[in-house]
Write a protein that binds this DNA or RNA. Structure first.
Lengths: 124, 124
DNA sequence: TTGGATGCAAACGCTTTGCATAATT
DNA sequence: AATTATGCAAAGCGTTTGCATCCAA
């Protein structure tokens, strides 16, 4: 079953199943269930393609490693980083556009909002 | 003049003079003018302290290396990344808070907005 | 048979750390 | 004298790349 050419579909399926930001190594672990022997290089190579083709979003936040997640529509999302448990999570989809932030002559392609604080579990 | 213990003041002065997001190596170059022989390790070590003490903000955006900048008040800023020239810049200070994004039980400490697109120079 | 996909290991670049030295108190 | 700061070089770590192999068309 783990034919050597079905690695990409395992990676993509993993991304869709998780539907939350994940790190490359987390993705490797998850996708390896269906694709034993999958290499980290393949994960990185495919993620790069997916980002380039706007199927996947790369999220870089302070204090946590880069995360990746499936893009559903032309949405953007807000992310939350807890500085106690150091976890990154998507907090909601948001269809607001940020035209009020527009500056003359600048063309907005996408927008990323990252909120840092303390999550519910760590607040109590 | 370049006594071995005035390195930190050179680094801090450079950050204040620039007053724009810079990479560690850019900061090294700039601070080295007043502190020849300054090492990159000292820059990283001091930046870490400054971030920990909330004097400096670290900005991580997709496609560009991490940048650092002086924090002026309890402001937050919006950043713009041009995907053509691949430069990151601060576009304005913003004193809005993001209470509308608040979720029950979450405590917001800070918020970062990064806009990706095409800058004025690259649009023309 | 030709081109793309993959795993492995080496290479890479940024960041951190160990250690000896030097400055500060 | 003890503590802290520094430069250098080595180590770390995540990511990329070269290359031989494997698979698909």
């Amino acid at each position: 079953m783990p034919s050597k050419t079905k690695q990409r579909s395992s990676i993509l399926a993993a991304l869709k199943n998780i539907d939350q930001p994940v790190t490359p190594s987390e993705l490797l672990n998850y996708a390896s269930i269906n694709s034993p022997g999958l290499g980290i290089a393949t994960v990185y190579r495919y993620l790069k393609r997916l980002v380039a083709s706007s199927q996947v979003r790369k999220i870089e936040a302070v204090g946590v490693p880069p995360h990746y997640e499936i893009i559903h529509k032309k949405d953007h999302r807000h992310f939350f980083v807890c500085y106690v448990c150091e976890k990154l999570s998507a907090i909601k989809r948001c269809y607001n556009d940020f035209k009020d932030l527009l500056i003359d002559g600048y063309k907005i392609k996408s927008c990323e909002v990252i909120i840092y604080g303390e999550c519910r579990e760590c607040s109590t």
